[in-house]
Design a binder for these strands. Sequence first.
DNA 1: AAGTCGTGCAACCGCTCTGGT
DNA 2: AACCAGAGCGGTTGCACGACT
Length: 240
Amino acid sequence: MGRQPCCDKLVKKGPWSADEDKKLIDFILTNGPCCWRAVPKLAGLRRCGKSCRLRWTNYLRPDLKRGLLTDAEEQLVIDLHAQLGNRWSKIAAMLPGRTDNEIKNHWNTHVKKKLVKMGIDPVTHGPLHKQPSVSGATDVHVATPAAPPESGDNRPPSTEKESLDALLESSGCPSVTSEDPTMNSLWDDDLPVVGSPWPFPGSEADFGPGGGVPTLEENCDWLLDYQLFGIQGLGLENLF
DNA sequence: AAGTCGTGCAACCGCTCTGGT
DNA sequence: AACCAGAGCGGTTGCACGACT
């Protein structure tokens, strides 16, 4: 017996229209992000609940940063990937304003190639079997993996928290694994809920100008999108 | 100018995890 | 302990768009 489809076949698929976005935003702002299965029905959308959740978390969330990852962010992604493997949601949790999907895409389209070009295996972060072509190598620092990610459960070993701590310190980031609530919750597998403020101290210092949780001003692109929808005055200020 | 190719990103699919009963 | 439903995650796909020929 096959698995039951998560939603009926009448649901719309493909790109979201501005009107659908507006309905979803309107609903989430009023009711908060909960009960995703019920969201499309209550919001008047012919979409799968899953699709709504994805659209919100990857595109509509007000705390999202837009645009390419900065060098510092990319470096952190590489380091974290060396420690965590393909656990994109965990990696994304360390990069305020970035989504797992965005990081995953960036990894697959940019970083992978970059590492291969440098003769580094993007999976194990060790040297490739082929002799690395030194030409074209950049100054990207690659962490020595505490343990190569294994298929299936690639959770960090018990000493990994300490090694990541040292890693972040050495790369200019403050030690967040022991004091930082976000990092602690990360290791505790108890992440902040979507929509809650990021407890990420000194994020601008960590990620440079424009880093960290975007301010209202920094989200002007996002707000401009809303202006296009003509839905000003929805109480967005309550989200900040 | 037209066609082809490569790249980037949004979105979907299916599996796993988690909490409730 | 077993089962079920919903949520979350990671892999993959498909399309739009720009670069190149």
